[in-house]
């Protein structure tokens, strides 16, 4: 690296035509007030990662196609740390209800800040400079399944999932998720201050459980508070659009929960659903949670 005085192009300058979508996507992984997040930039897009106590990790993927402009100039993949709450609250100040607010995001600024700037009004300009930090290393990374192995998975309507997880608050503590091939069904079972079992039967109600892949019985136990974190801050649009949330149980019981969050402008999302479906699918941010199962044995 040369230390010349030539002003280099920043690693990333990108523009988004509606900030609200980004606020929604990032809010989905905000399960407590103070959370440090790591952001990784690449030519493919922006990934934000948060994790908690080595057991829960969440990633928000915003691919470069979501942006109306995406200029990536870095070598390698720059990473930086930022307070998630501060980032979401700052982005939120750019959002004007009922009005798509376009913003420009730049990294780094002169002092390694993350710079935000509104771009859609000549007479009013909102800007923010957010201090970034050297990122903490992420303690673990989800390794995708080896080729040829189909992991056990199912897709459940997001609203039904939210209801189920809300209901499971009552028994609390730990929740068993069981998939069984015959009859094809998914069971959420909570034991704590009493029992509660919620069954999703694949053939009985295909509206609720839209996809189901399972060839043998699998059952793992997860902490309720982490399971709840995957759904509590989901933007209302996800529940309304009710596309479905995908659960995948991989090796060792690693659970991946994936939601699709629309980041399309409101005006694009409104007109009749069919014609915009295709467009909207391109304007989707992926929000993924990874949960480690609770270990029963004494090597806790």
């Amino acid at each position: 690296m040369s230390s010349s005085q030539v002003i280099e192009a920043p690693d990333l300058i990108c523009q988004l035509d509606s900030v609200q979508g980004m606020v929604n996507a990032l809010s989905a992984v905000r399960w407590k007030r103070y959370q440090d997040a790591m952001i990784e930039l690449s030519e493919h897009g922006i990934v934000l990662i948060v994790e908690e106590s080595g057991c829960l990790q969440a990633k928000v993927y915003m691919q470069s196609e979501l942006f109306i402009r995406y200029e990536y100039n870095a070598q390698g993949r720059p990473r930086f740390g930022v307070s998630l709450g501060l980032l979401v609250d700052s982005l939120n100040t750019f959002s004007v209800p009922g009005h798509p607010s376009a913003i420009e995001i730049q990294y780094p600024g002169p002092d390694m800040q993350l710079l935000l700037k509104s771009t859609d009004s000549l007479d009013a300009c909102i800007y923010a400079e957010i201090r970034t930090t050297i990122p903490e290393t992420i303690s673990w990374d989800y390794i995708s399944e080896p080729v040829g192995i189909t992991p056990h998975s199912f897709i459940v309507k997001s609203s039904a999932l939210k209801e189920a997880i809300d209901d499971l608050e009552w028994p609390g503590s730990s929740i068993d998720i069981t998939l069984q091939p015959s009859p094809p069904s998914v069971t959420f079972k909570g034991e704590g201050h009493g029992d509660l079992q919620i069954d999703f039967m694949y053939y009985v109600n295909t509206d609720l459980l839209t996809t189901f892949n399972c060839d043998r019985l699998v059952s793992h136990r997860y902490k309720y508070k982490f399971l709840r974190a995957t759904i509590t801050n989901l933007p209302s649009s996800v529940i309304k659009e009710n596309r479905g949330s995908k659960f995948t149980i991989g090796r060792g019981g690693m659970l991946k929960v994936q939601h699709l969050v629309s980041v399309a402008r409101l005006s694009d999302a409104r007109p009749n659903a069919n014609s915009t479906d295709q467009y909207q699918t391109r304007k989707i941010a992926f929000v993924e949670f990874f949960l480690k199962p609770e270990v029963d044995s004494d090597d806790y």
């Binding site: 501060l86 009013a124 909102i126």
Partner: peptide, 13 residues
């Protein structure tokens, strides 16, 4: 603040 500068400028008033 130490972590953030956020502002809004309104012009041509």
């Amino acid at each position: 603040t130490t972590l953030l500068t956020l502002g809004a400028e309104f012009q041509n008033l």
